[in-house]
Design a binder for these strands. Sequence first.
DNA 1: CGTTTCCGTGGGACCGCTCCCACGCGGCAT
DNA 2: ATGCCGCGTGGGAGCGGTCCCACGGAAACG
Lengths: 380, 380
Amino acid sequence: MNSAEHRPEATGTPTPASSANAPSPLHTAEVRHPAGARRPLTAAEVRRPTLNAVAARAGVGRGTVSRVINGSPKVSERSRAAVEQAIAELGYVPNRAARSLVTRRTDSVALVVPDAETRLFSEPYFSGIIQGVSAGLAGAGMQLLLVMARDAQEYARLASYLSAQRVDGVLMMEVHRDDTLPDRLEELAVPTVLAGRRSHREPLGHVRADNSGGARIAVRHLLAAGRRAIGTITGPLDMDVAQDRLDGYREALRDAGVAVADDLIASGDFTEEGGRAAMRELLERRPDLDAVFAASDVMASGAVLALRAAGRRVPHDVALVGFDDSIVARHIDPPLTSVRQPLEEMGRTMASLLLDEIAQRGTGHREVVLPTELVVRESA
Amino acid sequence: MNSAEHRPEATGTPTPASSANAPSPLHTAEVRHPAGARRPLTAAEVRRPTLNAVAARAGVGRGTVSRVINGSPKVSERSRAAVEQAIAELGYVPNRAARSLVTRRTDSVALVVPDAETRLFSEPYFSGIIQGVSAGLAGAGMQLLLVMARDAQEYARLASYLSAQRVDGVLMMEVHRDDTLPDRLEELAVPTVLAGRRSHREPLGHVRADNSGGARIAVRHLLAAGRRAIGTITGPLDMDVAQDRLDGYREALRDAGVAVADDLIASGDFTEEGGRAAMRELLERRPDLDAVFAASDVMASGAVLALRAAGRRVPHDVALVGFDDSIVARHIDPPLTSVRQPLEEMGRTMASLLLDEIAQRGTGHREVVLPTELVVRESA
DNA sequence: CGTTTCCGTGGGACCGCTCCCACGCGGCAT
DNA sequence: ATGCCGCGTGGGAGCGGTCCCACGGAAACG
C-alpha cells in the first residue's frame, strides 16, 4: 500500500517529500471558526448528530422526525417546523448505512466498465455517457458507483458482488455477444440496463444509438457524392454495434442498387492500428476504392495514415466517413465527416430506464433507440 | 422521471417501444437453473443469507463467522474450514450497510468532478486519472463513488453531503484557487486528496505533475531549435496548473538569457476557441513570433487553426508545443510535440495517499510531484 | 494435583435508522 | 353523555453486522 513513493524527477524540479502543515501530534478534529478562535470540539460534538438528537431537540419522537425527513404528509405543521429547525441547527444528515440496513435499498447504482476496453477511454464515449447517467441519477438522489473490472477473473466475481445488496441496480457500458454477466444479474433479480445490446433479441432493458441508421446515412452520403466503390472498416463483429453498422452499410448499398462485395469489407477492432491495417488491406484488394465508411473515428484516423502512406488524397481520391463524432474527428486532417450519437442523452435515458426498473420491477424491460445524425466535414 | 420517451427517428429506423420478453404478471424472482426447470424460489430463499445463517450452518457462533470473514488469526483451523464451507454453500456475501453502521467506515471514497469543467471530458485527462484511481483503490477493496456537481449550488451542498459518513475520503479532480470545498472538508475531518493544488502553499495532500518542469523542457526544446521569439498561451491563471506552466516558460527563457516580454503572453481558458483567440492576439502583437508553447493540447489545436488562417506554416514559420499529450496531439496536423504527464500514475498515487490518510489520520498531508516528459513530434 | 495462563469461542449489546402498532385526543354522530 | 372515527404521535422491535466480555477447556506452571 505504500506505493506512493516519490519518483525521480525527470524534469529537474526537486521533489520535496514535504509534509506541509504538519498537524499537532494528537490532531483531534478541530474546527476553525471564521468568527475567531474556539475551543476544539469534544468527541461527542464531533460525532454527527443522530435522528435521536434531532428528536430530543425538537421535542418530538423519533417517528415524527423520520416522517419529516421522508416527506410523510401525516405530520402537523407545528412538528414539522420544529423538526426542520432542529435539523438545521444541528446540521443533521441521515446516516445512509442505517437507513439501508432497514429499507434494503442503497440508493446507489453501479456503472460497470470493463477495463480491458481501454478504447473507451480514448474517446468521449465513456465521458459522455457518464455525464448523462450522472445527470439522470442526480435528480433521484441516487449515487453512482464506478466499478471497473480489470480482468476476466475480477469480472466473473462481479455478479455476486453486485447482488449483495450493495446497489439497487446496474448499468453496463459495453457488452459483447457472449457476455453472461447480464444474465446472471437477471437471475439474481438485479435491475440492469445496458448500453447497447448483445444481440438482436436482447432480453434486458437497454439503450443504444441507431447504429444501422447512422451507417446508412453515412453510406448514402458517399453514394450521393457519386462514389461507387465504397468499402467499410468494421468493428469487432462479436459486438452488436459493429454488426449493426455493417448491416446499415449493406442496406444502404442494396437500396441504391449497388452490389455488396465481400472484398470491400475489412474488419478492425475499434483501434487506430486496426483501422490502419484494415485500410491497407482494402487498398490492396481494391485499387479502385473511392470511399470508405469506418465504424469509428479512431479507426478512421488510422485509415487516414494508411491512405496517406499509399499516396491517396482524402477526400479527392478516397472519401472517408467515421462514426462517433469524437474529438479526433474535428482535429484530424482533413476534418472527418462522422456520424454523431447523442451520448449524454443515452446516459440520461439509461439512468431513467434503470430508475423505472428499480421502482417497479416487472414493468418489463424496454429498449430505447436514439437517433444519430451525420456531421459533414471535409473528408467526404 | 418519464424522460425515457422515445425520440423521433432522424435516421429512418422505426423505433419500436418494444418491451421484449414481457415477464409473467407476478414476476417473482425466478432462477433459471441450467440443470432444468425448477420451482421458483420462495421469498425466504431469495433473501440473501445472513451471517447468522452461516453460523447456524457451520455449527459455530456469530462471532466466529465474523472473525473468519475479517481474517482474524484467533480461529481454529477446524472452525475456519467449516465456516468457509458454509459461506460457499450459501453464497454468503456480507451486508455492507450493516457493517458500515457499526464500524463507521464505508469502504468507499468519492471522486468529485466539477461538472462545469466539461473540458475534462474532451480529454483523456479525466479518464486517465479515473483509471489510475480505480486501480489504486481496487486492491484495498474500496469502492469509487463518482460525484458530479452540476452547478455552484450543488457544489456548495457537497461538503455536508460528503461528511455525512457516506464516504471515508474524498478525491478532488480540479481545484481553483478560491475553492473552499477542500477547506470545509478539512474542517469536517474528511480525509481529502487533490489532483493539483490550489496554490503554492496547499495545506491538503495532493498529487500533481511537474507542470513548471514540463513547461521548461518544452520551451528549452524550442530554444534549442533556434527559436527566440517564443510566445505562450496560458490556461486560466486562477488555476495553479496554468500558473505553474507559465512560471516554467518564464524560467526557461530567463535561464537561456532571453528576455521575457509581456506581449508574448496571451491567456486562454483551456478551450480550443480560447487557444485560437489567443493565437490571433499573439500574431497581431508580435509579427516576428517564431514559436509558441501552449499550456494544453486543446488550446494548441485552436492555435493551429489561427496560424493556418494567418498563412503561417507549422513548424516552419511558427513551431508549436502543447501540453498533455492527449489524443488530439497525435492526430492534429502536423502532429503536435507535447508534454506528457503520467495520468494513470497520478490517479494511482492519489488513491494511495488517500488510503494512507484514511488509515492513519494525522500522518500529515503530503504532496507528490510526478515527472513529465516531452514527446517530440513534427510541430516543433 | 491445584492454580494460572491462554486460546478459541458464544452471545449480549449496540450502531442509527424505518416500520408499525398502540395510544391520546378532539370532533362528530348517536 | 357515550361511542366512534381518525389524525398525529411516541416508542418498541428489528435490520445484519462488529465488538467485547465472560467462559470452558487444554496447556503450562508451581
